[in-house]
Amino acid sequence: MDYAWDFGAINRYWSVLWNGLVVTFQLAGISLLAGLALGLFVGMMRFAKSPVLTWPAAVYIEVFRNSPVLVQLVWFYYAFPVLIDTTMSAFMAAVLALSFNTSAFSAELFRGGIQSIDTGQWEAGRALGMRGPTLMRRIILPQAIRRMIPPLTGRAIELTKMTALASTIAVPELLYQGKLINAVTFRPIETYTVVAVIYLVLLWSGTLLVDRVERRLGRSDAWNR
């Protein structure tokens, strides 16, 4: 390789990258919380008895799972404001798109988690005289949530990867900052390599964390079945 690598050129722009990283975390954090909350709600709807609730929830889930994230981002930034006749910041549009996207995936997760609880648990609770809300709160949800933590952390990592797409609609997250630096320094190799490495370190350590969490959950009090 006879290219002269020169990381010095982008050395002065670490603060720019840092600002981008902060926005990445903000975007991911807010979208995750909103997405999980919404996902729980939609998951409960999906799991309800009446078709009036389950059908819209099912459609919602299919729409947001079966459309590409970038399309969702672009739609919320360019199309949605026209629909509701308002202007919207790019960050807001990104939060909306990523939250709805996350909610659709986590709704399935919640449903799966609750349905994975053995029916015997429901029966034992009822046999003691417990009613619906108490049964959910004391017996079902504590067990279900524990099972959902590994796939949910997986979702969090996927979400963090998706934040890079927000650069397309000019949200000043990490990749966008990279683009800015490249525009100034004309050194795409160093710039994009550094950006890639930062993401790599961030997400790889994230997956290692997930593995550790999974193993610890599996170990302590090791519930059977």
Partner: peptide, 17 residues
């Protein structure tokens, strides 16, 4: 009713948590 009628199951169904 279920407060007055207790049940023991074949597969115990203890709360694992």
């Amino acid at each position: 009713v279920r407060r007055r009628v207790g049940m023991v199951f074949q597969h115990f169904n203890l709360f694992p948590h």
